[in-house]
Design a binder for these strands. Structure first.
Lengths: 149, 149
DNA sequence: AGTTCTTACCAATTATTTTCCTGTACATTT
DNA sequence: AAATGTACAGGAAAATAATTGGTAAGAACT
């Protein structure tokens, strides 16, 4: 992981379809060297996968919400994590410091879909308490943040 | 935007490097038809960009935090949004309902980098109050969530 | 009904890109 | 100095993507 690798990652984060020749020109390396570096970055897990950044609204997921979860004392935490990992509406789930146990980011077709989701969490005895915050608008939503600065 | 388009998006979200032939086999379409659909999805903005999912830890961004921002009454909100859009540590920034104005997701090299970030927000008179929640571990972190149940 | 327009699709060709292989240069170790 | 390892470049081969031209189905209009 040197400066060149970081540059390549930056380029791919912006546009993962850039050709090896193109990237090579940007980092002053031959296409085959760039290829070898990308292969290594994927193999070592620095690059987890190639993916797309989609417009969730266009896909019918109009609602973005953060659900703060206070896990109930008798909750099966492993089951909770599995549930979060598998649930299609869950975009992110982090164990956090502070008053809450988990911060869960969910995307849903409509506001009406949030209640059944919370009800399900309750039914499974995960919840001691929760708080839901709706995102009204999004200023920025990147997976990637530039490492420099 | 039909069912086939959604399938294609699902496939690309999983692995944006799948070949047109491959995708075509999955959705029962010729490679050129798949290509045409992807081109259209990009042109219409449903696919915002092709990108990578990187391991932030490996890139030296060990800390993930959510900063809840209560904007000060006299804050220049447009300036705040510009600041958020440009700041390299900011991964997400959403205007939200509830007690706070904004939810800001940041990635930083170390815990020590959070304070200067907050100080800068204060210096620019954006902050009335704030609360920072650190992510201890991440159960899930996807950009994409499947639309179907 | 016939004509035009549009849209989606496929097959075949062409262009580009990726992949794989080999040799070289350079640094490190013995 | 010889041996080893690593990163790189160049080029051939393979795979993939983009383009083009043509067909078919359906909608809108005459």
């Amino acid at each position: 992981m040197d400066e060149t690798d970081r540059k390549i990652i930056g380029i791919l984060a912006q546009d993962a379809r850039r050709s090896l020749t193109d990237i090579g020109a940007a980092v002053e390396l031959s296409p085959s060297s760039v290829n070898e570096r990308i292969r290594r970055l994927v193999a070592s897990g620095v690059i987890r996968r190639f993916t797309i950044d989609a417009d969730h609204r266009a896909l019918g997921l109009d609602v973005l919400a953060f659900v703060w979860v206070g896990l109930s004392p008798d909750a099966d935490e492993a089951a909770f994590r599995t549930f979060m990992a598998d649930h299609p509406a869950v975009a992110e789930c982090h164990h956090v410091t502070g008053a809450w146990s988990y911060c869960v980011k969910v995307r849903m077709p409509s506001l009406g879909d949030i209640e059944p989701f919370l009800a399900e969490l309750k039914r499974r005895r995960f919840l001691a308490r929760s708080e839901t915050v709706i995102a009204l608008s999004t200023v920025r939503d990147n997976q990637f943040t530039s490492p420099e600065r």
